[in-house]
Amino acid sequence: MSTISLSNKQLSRRSQIAYLKKRINDLALNLYGLGGYLFLYLPIVILLIFSFNDSRSVAQWHGFTLDWYVEMIHDEQIILSLWNSVFVAVVSTLISTVIGTLAAMAMERYRFVGHLFMDAVLYLPIIIPDIAMAIMLLIFFNISGIGFEPWKVTFFGVRLAVPYSVIIGHVAFNISFVAVVVRARLAQMDRTLEEAAQDLYAGPWQTFWRVTFPMMLPGIIGGALLAFTLSLDDFVITFFTSGAGFNTLPVRVFGMIKKGVTPKINAVSVLMLVFSLALIGISLLFRKGGDKGSPIEIGL
């Protein structure tokens, strides 16, 4: 049908229908978006609500209480596992941030024989499933005989005994994530500033510390925050590489879930949720300070 043969009336009718169609599409998309976010948030919100439930049930509301939080704070096992988690995350983040940043600079700034190979080696820990990496490390630590002895340390006045194997494992998967985030930052950077510094007779070290490093910093912080989060969240690799008797918070929670569901687990979950939110808040703060990178960068 050709448009020329349509009368004016028919035409306006057509555009009306087209307009209506567009409105309906828009509405449908908006509703879909709302539904999508509800799906993502509802389970977490329900979890939060029932951490205040005055009953052992996590399905029927019996009134408000803070008992489960009180019980959580008095559970020495939980508090100890929390300190273990924080210690492992801090140490593994420090090590992997330094190592990963150096690797990112090598990969982004140089072309060399073996570049493609190292690329593959760096990406592999990201894509390999947790369970495969966990059993690889378990076998390795067993036959090499290194790693299972605990690192006895006093951390903020708390005495911890953390197996080296757990920290080694966390660093092994975190190096790659730090390297990816820092590389993304390096790739976006404007090289002309460094060239300008060199033109003004800045030496290589001066150029690095005064120009390159400050520009890299948002990427390094982003990588460190990602490493910290991944380390705090890890369950599978810690579970398999820690040997008996050592718990991080996720390992402890898994054990509690296996024993039975109580609102106390909900309370611990809320504690972990608060940690995650705090980390997101920190990463946003730093992102405002540096120039805006893609938010995807932090997540992937």
Partner: peptide
């Protein structure tokens, strides 16, 4: 995007546990 990052950064174990409390046969929400 930020609203998407929050569940993304939330512990996987916790998110799985949330569904456990919803889905359980006799005692799930």
């Amino acid at each position: 995007v930020l609203a998407l990052m929050i569940p993304f950064w939330t512990n996987f174990l916790i998110r799985t546990y949330a569904w456990l409390t919803l889905l359980r046969t006799h005692t799930g929400l």
